[in-house]
Structures are given as C-alpha cells and as structure tokens.
Write a protein that binds this DNA or RNA. Structure first.
Lengths: 190, 190
DNA sequence: CGCCCCTTTGATATTAATCAAGAACTGTGG
DNA sequence: CCACAGTTCTTGATTAATATCAAAGGGGCG
C-alpha cells in the first residue's frame, strides 16, 4: 500500500460483516496469500487509495535470494497475527467503550509510527458502522459508547479526525499495551 | 508438539483470560517466536503433554538451507492467522450456540485430519470454563448453550469425548466452512 | 436544492453476565 | 473400598450489556 486505507473482512451467510484489520501506508496486507493458495477473506478500501502490486513469483524469489529480507516479510505476517490476537482479547473480554478506546489507541500509535500523526491527532476515516463491524458491535452501540468516551473527555472525533485528549486515561480504559504491535520504538506522547 | 493439548492465551489486568487457539499433535505453536523478539502471550497445557524443543538458530538455519521447507513453516504461521480470523468472526458476529458448534467442528476436523478421531468422535479435553475463555462467554452461558446443542441432538459430549451426531446440522448452526483451515483434503464424514 | 449516507436519540427486546447454591465427578489418602 | 476435598457441571433468579427497531437531524456532493 502506497497510500490510503484498506481493511480486511469477511461477509457471513447472514450478510453480517466482520472486519479483521485496517491497513495504512506501507502495509502489505496481502502478504499471506504468498503461501496460501486460496484467499479466505476479502480486501477493500475505506477511502481512495494507491497500491502497488508485486507478483507472487517475484516476492517468493526475492525472499529466497535475500533471506534476511524474506524473514522481515515473514515477521510482518507474524505481527499481523499478533494484532488479530489482540483484537480477539477485545471482542472476547472487553466491553464496548474499552474496545473503541483500544482501536483509537492502536490506530493512533500506528499512524504516529509512520509519521502520519501531528501532535495528538490523526486522520481516522472509519464510520461508526465500520467500527462496529470491526469490534463486533452494532452501529447504535458504537455511537453511544463513543459519546461516552467523548463525554469523559478522553478523545475528540470530528470530521474523521481523531484527537487524543487524555492519553493515559484512554490507555487505561482500553487496557492498551503497545507491546503486541512489536514496534522497534514506541513513539512518545506527552 | 509430540502429544497432548496446548492452548495459547493471555491474562488481562482484570484477571480474565482469553484463549487464542488450541494445539494438538504435530502443531508447532511457538513458531511465531522465531521472528518476534518478545512473546506477547503464554502457552499452557490442557492435559499432560509431550513436547520437543527446537533451538531458534537451528530452525532459522533450517529454513534458509531448505527454502521450500522454510516456506512450509511460514505457511503454518499463516494458517494460524487464518484460524484467528475465523475465531474473530465467531466472537464478533455469532451467538453462543453457534460459537460452540463452530469450535466443535474445528476441533473435530483437525483431529480427524491427523488421524485422532474414530468414526464420529474424538477426544475433547476442554472444560466449560476453558471453552468460555476461548469463545468470549461466561462458564454458565457455555453450559446452557451446550445443553441446547445436546438437546437438539447435534452433539454428545461426555467424559471429554465429543461425538458428532448431526454433522450437517452442526455445520449449519456454526456457519462452518473448513476452507480457512487450508487443509489439502478435508476428511469426509458420512 | 435534494438525496444519500452518517450520526444521533428513544423505546424495547434479547442475549449474555453475574450471583448463588447444589449435584456430580475426580483424584487422594487412609 | 471409602471418605473427603477440590473441580466441574448444572440450575435458578436477577441484573447488565448490547441488539434491534424506528425515526429524526446533519453534512457533503452532484
């Protein structure tokens, strides 16, 4: 991905959608298909985006000719899996406000890590219905929980711009620990 | 893993546990630590088990000296991730009986694939509290939903032996499609 | 200007959690 | 072989979280 926002998702028999991850500049969301013959989910864009395609053969040869770089690609897919696990923790064991807070923390830290956040805010193009499908909540409940977080002054979210107002409190609410993102250095925030 | 049952899990601040996966004979549950410096979750046994350890250096050298085999290891971690995604679908978008049914389907198919199922039944050493922690449900609710599945004659579960009574109906209940397991051939069941 | 999507709000229904307690197992030591 | 201690399973009653249904405002865009 050169630029934009992607998500991975699956549509159920019932028509319900489950979103698994969001992807931003520099991510390689389709890496897993390198060694899996059949795609078991879909990729879609949230906003107009720019992508580059790498043929599987080239990527495989590349990974073999430069094993160290191949390992980095492998590592990238392992981090994806670590993020899935963290999302499972949210859906399995946290209530709605905490899940939303966690998503805000995660996206903000990722955006900051690639230099796409200024100060305490970053772009956040997810609609409430998209958030619901990612967190296992109904749109209405996302709205109410979001109101709650706003009401308590933890975040501001307006015109698809997220602003972190109380970083410590937000992390506490979310139970957020950036370890699972396996960043080399976690960006500091005042 | 040579023999036994493992699970991967994380304990939250609150003391709640989230289980991410179960592992049986032949699985390599710790493969992800090959390229991730810090372990972001735990591994534990469900029953007495036998394991073999492979030093990371050996595994890394092995993967480089035999790239085809290295790719198979990589692929294994990608299938793990696919299973995580499927569990996310369950926790995000399916009700309790469907989640339990799905877990039964998954475990049965995996057991069958490695020759550990006879006819329509296999070992199933999960307590109801373990199932709850894996599916994001309380123990009591697992019990009631399990009763429901039993009452409808879909499964039998006794003395930690699972028996599939109505395979078609169970899959329907679960919304189960084995594609995500990426098995070369899905074992047939009458 | 008008339409469509998104957000917000209220009312109600459903699912699942929690609390509590008794019954059925399992393994242990005598 | 039995008593008992600790789990695990089951059940009932109650509460809390979340979904669903319905409808009214906003905002951006052609």
């Amino acid at each position: 991905m050169l630029n934009g926002w992607f998500c991975r998702y699956k549509i159920l028999e019932t028509g319900a959608r489950q979103i698994f991850s969001f992807h931003i500049n520099g991510d390689i969301p389709d890496l897993q298909s390198l060694h899996l013959k059949t795609m078991d989910h879909n990729l879609g864009t949230l906003v107009q985006s720019t992508v580059a395609f790498v043929p599987h053969d080239s990527a495989r040869n590349f990974a073999r000719d430069f094993p160290h770089l191949g390992d980095i690609l492998w590592r990238d897919t392992l981090i994806d899996a670590a993020i899935f696990r963290q999302w499972m923790v949210g859906m399995g064991r946290r209530d709605a406000p905490a899940r939303i807070a966690h998503l805000c923390c995660e996206i903000f830290v990722k955006m900051r890590a690639v230099g796409l956040a200024k100060e305490n805010s970053c772009e956040f193009p997810l609609t409430q219905s998209v958030m619901g499908d990612a967190l296992g909540l109904s749109t209405v409940h996302v709205n109410r929980s979001l109101m709650d977080l706003r009401g308590r002054g933890l975040i501001a979210l307006d015109k698809h711009m997220l602003t972190i107002l109380k970083w410590e409190a937000l992390q506490d609410e979310a139970g957020f620990d950036p370890l699972y993102l396996h960043l080399d250095r976690v960006p500091e925030l005042a």
